[in-house]
Amino acid sequence: MRSDGDNEAGESVTIYDVAAEAGVAASTVSRTFSRPGRVSYSTAEKVRAAAERIGYRTEAVARASAAGGSATKTLGLVVADIANPVFIEMVRGAEYAASQAGLTVVFSNARENGKREYEALNRALPTVDGLLLAGSRLPDTTIRTVAKQKAMVVMNREVRGVASVVIDQREGARTAAEHLASHGARSIAYLSGPERSWADGMRWTGVRDAAAALGIEARRLGPFLPTMTGGQRAAETWLGSRTDGVIAYNDLMALSFMQTVQIRGLEVPDDVGIVGFDDLLASRLTRPQLSTVVGPLERMGATAAAHVMAIANGAQATTDRPVVMPARLIARGSSEPQP
């Protein structure tokens, strides 16, 4: 089937042009846009980049919306807690992808409150074309119920039966544990975050698996609030039973943890190596700088928005497995001695 879109020069651009530009089959291009999740992350990124270069995708999506696939030209985005900087990048990516297709994003902040999140979803249902959930704390059953009523994609959490886009949290945490072990850590504490956080569970699994494979001790502390206050309380708990290394649920906790133990007279990383998650700007402003694990958060938001728009326009959602994006460790002074 031939699918056309016009580039800026007014020339007709087809999926065959995109395929040639990306070096893939036309069927792969078709699946990238019509069957979200059926193409690997790296291949989908190659196709989207090629489509953008030759002016295909944005115009094609906008044309589909103009044809009646989108009724309100609005997406609803509910965030677990906008005070957590990690969500800002997701919001930025989703808003950009939506605006490129002529849609507006309506934003709601749940403030780590399940009831508030559920109420926000119910208000949004009749007024938007699709829903994005960022770090949702709602039960899986509730999310599945809402997804049956409206096109939906969940970010930063895997929900069986619902289209999801996630970062490989387990692999990221495993890499962090291996990194600490390579610098002499024989015991690692994981400072856990919200109990209903999918990412928290995956990170602990990664730490635990790495420790078992390496023959070192892994200990889970918490849960704690994913905030500076939570990090301080985690440090106070940890000081009663210290470990060689610490992996925190996020950078906010890790930064506060590091500040607290330094005030108590400990040297980082000599007395304890520390790794966080998310690569906040503040992580590069401390002494020592904070090691961290990060994924392409802005791209996650853009990918999730592209998927929910495709689903709203009639594409079949892929719900049997999430789109998984890579995580990488950024090693800095908090986890390895500097020359």
Rank of each mutant, 00 (worst) to 15 (best):
residue 74 T to V: 12
residue 335 S to M: 04
residue 231 G to W: 06
residue 86 V to R: 04
residue 180 L to S: 12
residue 316 Q to K: 12
residue 165 V to E: 06
residue 216 I to G: 06
residue 84 N to M: 11
residue 262 Q to F: 11
residue 119 E to R: 10
residue 177 A to T: 15
residue 191 L to I: 11
residue 268 V to Y: 04
residue 18 V to C: 11
residue 181 A to E: 08
residue 62 A to R: 14
residue 61 V to G: 01
residue 123 R to F: 12
residue 249 Y to T: 07
residue 64 A to T: 00
residue 327 A to K: 03
residue 8 E to V: 14
residue 118 Y to A: 13
residue 183 H to F: 12
residue 116 R to G: 05
residue 237 T to P: 03
residue 221 L to D: 04
residue 183 H to N: 13
residue 294 V to R: 00
residue 86 V to K: 09
residue 264 R to N: 14
residue 114 G to A: 11
residue 258 M to V: 13
residue 266 L to M: 15
residue 88 I to H: 03
residue 163 A to Q: 03
residue 270 D to L: 12
residue 314 G to K: 07
residue 81 D to M: 06
residue 276 G to S: 10
residue 329 L to N: 07
residue 291 S to Y: 00
residue 248 A to C: 15
residue 70 S to R: 03
residue 253 M to C: 09
residue 180 L to K: 04
residue 17 D to I: 08
residue 61 V to R: 01
residue 14 T to C: 06
residue 197 S to E: 05
residue 46 K to T: 14
residue 39 V to L: 07
residue 162 V to H: 01
residue 223 P to M: 07
residue 174 R to D: 15
residue 154 V to Q: 00
residue 276 G to D: 02
residue 158 E to M: 14
residue 174 R to H: 13
residue 265 G to K: 13
residue 49 A to T: 10
residue 4 D to L: 13
residue 249 Y to I: 07
residue 257 F to R: 04
residue 295 G to H: 02
residue 77 L to H: 11
residue 315 A to Y: 01
residue 74 T to C: 14
residue 202 M to Y: 13
residue 99 S to Y: 06
residue 50 A to D: 02
residue 138 L to F: 09
residue 111 R to K: 13
residue 324 V to N: 00
residue 328 R to E: 13
residue 124 A to H: 06
residue 278 D to Y: 00
residue 141 T to E: 15
residue 167 I to S: 15
residue 213 A to F: 01
residue 79 V to G: 04
residue 200 D to S: 09
residue 295 G to F: 03
residue 275 V to E: 13
residue 5 G to T: 05
residue 5 G to M: 00
residue 77 L to K: 11
residue 63 R to W: 05
residue 95 E to F: 00
residue 66 A to F: 14
residue 298 E to L: 03
residue 1 M to N: 04
residue 116 R to N: 08
residue 44 A to V: 02
residue 47 V to D: 08
residue 10 G to Y: 05
residue 160 R to I: 10
residue 335 S to R: 06
residue 266 L to V: 09
residue 90 M to I: 14
residue 130 G to Y: 03
residue 226 P to C: 02
